[in-house]
Design a protein around this nucleic acid. Structure first.
Lengths: 176, 176
DNA sequence: TGCCTATTTCTGTAATTACCGAAACAGGAG
DNA sequence: CTCCTGTTTCGGTAATTACAGAAATAGGCA
């Protein structure tokens, strides 16, 4: 990337990644592919970003596990090439889905077990049981909401988001 | 915390924190306070979690900057005491607000600058300009949505979330 | 005002995580 | 089958981040 704006974008995306628990190189690889209009092979990415081959390889694997980067075949070239999802809605939903699977679902699982284990125990203060139970319910509600909303067509999601709080006007029982 | 379930909760919360870019100790302090029914002073927290005084002090400062922990005065004790927000909706919204302020808003700012700087430049491929512009719009839309939705009463948020995708039934133009 | 206690800041160290380069591995083409 | 190119795994190193303990500061009470 010889365009300074593209470089700035990639660097910033790397920083953002590390603030959200994604390693910097992975985020940079993603940013580079997002800005590319054609598939790139690993060596190419290494060169553009100044990263080691292995690092890029692992990054690509990680990004593919999020399903926001995919391997494509380029005619007449034996090497694997990679492209990024460019639809940002799809990208967001896929990232959310994977983080839910990796982090949220196990958390709900654990909280459920803790809540069960505290059920009807007289030796544990009531507020502990209650707080853990409420956290379990809360995260569960969020996760269910996500799983539900995710199936809506993109256009509907856009409509809902653009509506924002005005959505409440359409709810039954709201003032005209 | 001598209750194993509480201990497990705190440890897990710490792990969750580090996966989301919050340092482990900070998250643990938060978890401990969330499970407490009374304010605790710093020394108390150190002892329960086995952390150094300075670490706890910084953690408390960080949590207060998110406004999910606040300092309270306890009658007849000169030391500062701390309690956590126990309403999980408030907690989530406050965390989101602060992360938006710290990370998202500056990102939007930067993307805006990059987009402006690329405006009408013939030496830059069109797809670069377009991709950066779309990212700017997208994150902007999300941020606006959040700022808007945040002002709704908690009860309304709960209603909307419980509705999930069924909300679309109330949209104008949807089939009965 | 000066002391005592609580709190924060600072600095060095420990632990973690990211990263590179080398070596092993895989899979086609000749 | 064997060579060649590309990919992945592995082990050591560098960089970052978290953390503890000491020193400095602040703030209330006598």
């Amino acid at each position: 990337m010889d365009i300074p704006e593209a470089r700035a974008f990639i660097l910033h995306w790397g920083e953002m990644g590390s603030q959200w628990g994604v390693n910097r190189s992975v985020a940079q690889v993603h940013a580079l592919l997002y800005l590319s209009d054609r598939p790139r092979h690993a060596e190419d990415i290494c060169e553009k970003l100044g990263l080691a081959r292995s690092n890029v390889s692992n990054g690509l694997k990680e990004l593919q596990s999020y399903a926001i980067v995919r391997r494509v075949h380029v005619e007449g070239d034996r090497r694997d090439h990679f492209t990024a999802e460019t639809d940002l809605w799809d990208m967001l939903l896929k990232i959310a889905a994977e983080r839910k699977r990796r982090e949220i679902d196990p958390t709900i699982q654990l909280l459920g077990e803790l809540a069960d284990s505290l059920e009807g125990r007289a030796d544990v203060p009531a507020h502990i049981r209650e707080r853990i139970g409420r956290m379990h319910d809360f995260i569960g509600t969020l996760a269910d909401w996500y799983a539900d909303i995710r199936r809506l067509p993109k256009a509907t999601l856009v409509t809902l988001m653009k509506l924002g709080s005005r959505i409440t006007r359409f709810l039954p029982g709201s003032k005209p």
